[in-house]
């Protein structure tokens, strides 16, 4: 399964808003921790090292 780098979120504006809202009112430390938990949860959901390595490369 290759990494999807083309549009793949039907409700992109709503999902993006959810992400920003989740951080509202959090300190920098709490936001960092939330991001880390979120990344780990999504990594596990993907569960494919090749895709994740590709994603890490794309994000760099």
């Amino acid at each position: 399964m290759p990494l999807t780098l083309t549009p793949n979120m039907p409700d992109q504006d709503a999902i993006y808003q959810d992400l920003i809202a989740a951080h509202e009112g959090l300190s920098k430390d709490d936001s960092d921790a939330l991001n880390a938990r979120l990344i780990l949860i999504l990594m596990n959901h993907i569960g494919d090292r090749e895709v994740l390595v590709e994603a890490l490369r794309a994000a760099k």
């Binding site: 960092d32 921790a33 880390a36 938990r37 990344i39 780990l40």
Partner: peptide, 13 residues
């Protein structure tokens, strides 16, 4: 610092 943040996130989860 980031390594600590991820480590603690793992423990929380």
């Amino acid at each position: 610092e980031m390594s600590t943040i991820f480590r603690n996130a793992v423990l929380t989860l």
